[in-house]
Nucleic acid binder design. Structure first.
Length: 100
DNA sequence: AAAATGACGGTGT
DNA sequence: TACACCGCCATTT
């Protein structure tokens, strides 16, 4: 499928370890700069956690959201374990934002 | 085919 | 700075 969801999943799969991307960034790379919502929806419905590191996708301000596997706590834990810098409850985008 | 939903984002109050 | 509302896009029912 060449659907937007396939592209989105592909983009997320390209996020390097120790880095994170915002929904808006992923959506933009997928081909629709305003499809941040669509991206999040796809993650929640598909939960391709085995193939897609959705835990590396955070909000525009670095705030962790959702994560259908075990909540934001697991997401936060995984990111931190990968070397992502955290600023309290949110990711330090200044140092851990994925620069495509 | 149409309406509703959702892990967002930006702006306004 | 915090809360609320509207707008955007794609998927699902």
């Amino acid at each position: 499928m060449d659907s937007f969801r396939e592209k989105t999943l592909a983009v997320v799969a390209q996020i390097p370890k120790g880095k994170v991307a915002t929904y808006g960034q992923v959506a933009k790379l997928a081909g629709s700069p305003r499809a941040a919502r669509a991206v999040g929806r796809l993650m929640s419905t598909n939960t391709d956690t085995k193939n897609i590191p959705c835990h590396r996708v955070v909000g525009a301000d670095g705030l962790l959201t959702g994560y259908a596997y075990g909540g934001t706590l697991i997401k936060h834990q995984k990111l931190q374990d990968e070397g992502v810098a955290f600023s309290g409850v949110r990711v330090n985008l200044s140092t851990s934002l994925w620069n495509a």
